[in-house]
């Protein structure tokens, strides 16, 4: 018989679940500290949390890594200068930060020197397209934040389309562990997505 709860030593390491001191501070608290004038630890923590996605937004929208770098720099300069404008009642910190980033990205996109005259590239991305891109960047980021054991079981499921029995065989672990680990992985992914204000 299969135990409903299966010990899974590969993912029991608390490092998987605990984000450390800085990681335990919410984005809103970090923004408040930045608004209070601290551009050191809180802003660097926000950089750790958001720079990858902002850079990805730049690479995808602007098709240019130099412009994507510029987007990251400008976004964080703007964030530093305007953190005090954040109001929780108007949306999440993630929304606030990506509102800054997408405006700057569109400014960069409009810069004449930033685009090749490729007709396919001429249409300004719609809000909806940018929303979807930001969501996918967030899902990628959330998935990357999981432990490798959790990420692996999800990737084997949805990317490689393996059944649980095949995953167990591939990884050389009991089927019960695959089931438990899959559930933990989804739960953790859900919580990482919520941290990023992403809902399907």
């Amino acid at each position: 018989m299969l135990d409903v709860v299966t010990e899974d030593p590969a993912t029991d390491d608390p490092v998987d679940l605990v984000h450390g001191v800085a990681g335990s501070t919410s984005d809103a608290e970090l923004l408040a500290a930045v608004a209070a004038g601290d551009r050191d630890v809180p802003l660097r923590e926000l950089y750790q949390r958001y720079a990858g996605r902002v850079y990805g937004l730049g690479v995808q929208l602007l098709s240019d890594r130099g412009l994507a770098e510029e987007l990251v720099q400008e976004t964080f300069v703007r964030l530093w200068r305007s953190a005090g404008l954040y109001e929780a009642s108007r949306g999440s910190p993630a929304t606030f930060i990506f509102t800054i980033a997408r405006r700057l990205a569109i400014d960069l996109w409009r810069r004449p020197s930033s685009r090749t005259p490729d007709p396919d590239q001429q249409a300004l991305p719609t809000d909806d397209q940018i929303d979807r891109l930001v969501t996918r960047l967030g899902v990628r980021d959330a998935l990357d934040s999981l432990s490798s054991a959790h990420r692996q079981v999800l990737e084997l499921s949805y990317r490689d389309q393996l059944k649980q029995t095949e995953i167990a065989e591939r990884l050389g672990i009991p089927l019960g562990t695959v089931k438990t680990r899959s559930h933990h992985a989804l739960r953790l992914l859900k919580s990482e997505l919520q941290r990023r204000d992403i809902h399907g």
């Binding site: 551009r39 802003l43 660097r44 950089y47 720079a51 990858g52 850079y55 990805g56 690479v59 995808q60 890594r65 770098e69 990251v72 720099q73 964080f76 300069v77 979807r132 891109l133 969501t135 996918r136 960047l137 899902v139 990628r140 998935l143 990357d144 999800l154 949805y158 990317r159 989804l186 992914l189 859900k190 997505l193 992403i198 809902h199 399907g200």
Partner: peptide, 28 residues
């Protein structure tokens, strides 16, 4: 909502990349 988000990522998701070295220092 998770299966659809994962499927979207698989079919239409952004590529992975790493942040350029030194970008954090240049930004700060």
């Amino acid at each position: 909502d998770l299966p659809q988000l994962l499927t979207d990522l698989l079919t239409d998701g952004p590529n992975t990349w790493s942040l350029p070295a030194g970008l954090e220092e240049r930004t700060f």
